[in-house]
Design a protein around this nucleic acid. Structure first.
Lengths: 227, 227
DNA sequence: TTACGGTGTTAAGATTTCGTTAAGGCACAA
DNA sequence: TTGTGCCTTAACGAAATCTTAACACCGTAA
């Protein structure tokens, strides 16, 4: 499973399909755009982790897309272009592109270059955004550890997922259905019994017997309170 | 004025001169190496900001140089190689290279790719050490030796890589997938069984039977504890 | 009062994952 | 050839995790 979201900007349908099929087979999530303005809108609304951009677009030039996105975002951009002139490469790279592949390109090389970027993204994840603190509870998403009053808790994979889900939506009531869908991935399964068991163990581990942190909403679901 | 120090590793004198002249004209500082082992020593002693590496070296293969340096450092490495096969590119990129240029290359493109890296370096300054000490364990990355209480351990290549990976991410939980990708370089391989065996032998060699140093996170991965 | 739906709690299997050992393959050197 | 490291693979018991079922509890409505 791969959590990276890739924005593919390419007006040529066969190539777009080639890229998206490759991405799908390698467990990337992706969205696509055909025009430059569309790409700019999507990168603002969906905040992709990586952008694959063709320079020859029907409305505006790809370099303008780079410049526009670079005004607010450092998202890695890989150019995939038919233009093989040095001048084009240099312009695109200097305007903010991170890499440049010339068509026809090898999908394997594209995947390798994506992995290079992923490696870098993994290293430079910002600490402030990867930590959750609420009362006595602290989740360190980078190291994957949970603390209660600076004492480390040992959580099983499902317990950890469940806690992260509640934390990410702190203050909101999450329905049983939504929680089960998110944690188990299966939509129509009958895991409500399991969910109740996990809630019990989670509350026990969090010393939450008074249930001030994780509240039950009968007939609806659960909510983590903001403390 | 440009404060970046570039290590140029290239045995072909005309090309080396071409690169260094280009760097000089653009106000980079640089040092040069002809052999792979020399490159490893210089990158440890001088801590360059960027490395430009030719794959065809007289003593050891360039990919081995990447692997060795990557045991302790994330310094950006640009490959400049006569090998234009996809397979070579993918191998080098997966082993830790950040970019790959095929000879003959345009100096202007090389400069543009250097600027891409500089942009990134300006955003995040990170420190790398040539020695790692944690409890009774000591790793000397340059010589590639591991000590337990000043007694040298004999580790196989994969054991060493694995230990370096855990050390570089001390305190963090690393997923099986990430470890396999980093150590074997191959994505999506089924090496989990091997990984378990290597963990066992590594723990035995580290006298870590109590597993206080290397912890298992069941269903997720492993973590080296900060002692 | 009793019945009932939804929930909390506990414990007992069932299942998955891990650690360990040993066997076999492969490369390389003597 | 034989021997020696090194790596992979398979097998199996052990440990951890997950699911399931049973039952207690609590509020509400008949």
């Amino acid at each position: 499973m791969n959590e990276y979201l890739v924005l593919v900007v390419e007006d040529d349908k066969p190539i777009r399909n080639l890229i998206t099929t490759t991405l799908k087979m390698n467990d990337y999530r992706y969205i696509t755009a055909v025009k430059g303005n569309e790409a700019i809108m999507l990168s603002a609304s969906h905040k992709p982790d990586i952008i694959i951009l063709d320079l020859g677009l029907p409305d505006i030039d790809g370099v303008e897309v780079i410049e526009h996105i670079r005004t607010w975002s450092d998202v890695p951009i890989i150019i995939v272009s038919a233009r093989s002139e040095d001048r084009d490469k240099i312009t695109a790279l200097d305007k903010g592109a991170d890499d440049y592949l010339t068509k026809p390109f090898s999908v394997e090389e594209l995947l390798a270059r994506l992995r290079v970027i992923q490696r870098r993204l993994m290293r430079s994840e910002d600490v402030s955004f990867t930590e959750f603190i609420n009362g006595r509870l602290r989740i360190d998403y980078v190291s994957g550890c949970v603390y209660l009053d600076d004492e480390e808790l040992h959580l099983t994979p499902i317990e950890y997922k469940l806690l992260c889900l509640l934390a990410k939506n702190v203050g909101k009531v999450l329905t049983h259905k939504y929680i089960i869908q998110s944690v188990w991935g299966t939509p129509a399964d009958n895991n409500e019994a399991s969910l109740r068991v996990f809630m019990a163990t989670l509350r026990k581990k969090l010393s939450d017997s008074s249930q001030a942190l994780i509240q039950t909403h009968i007939g609806i679901g659960y909510r983590m309170m903001k403390l």
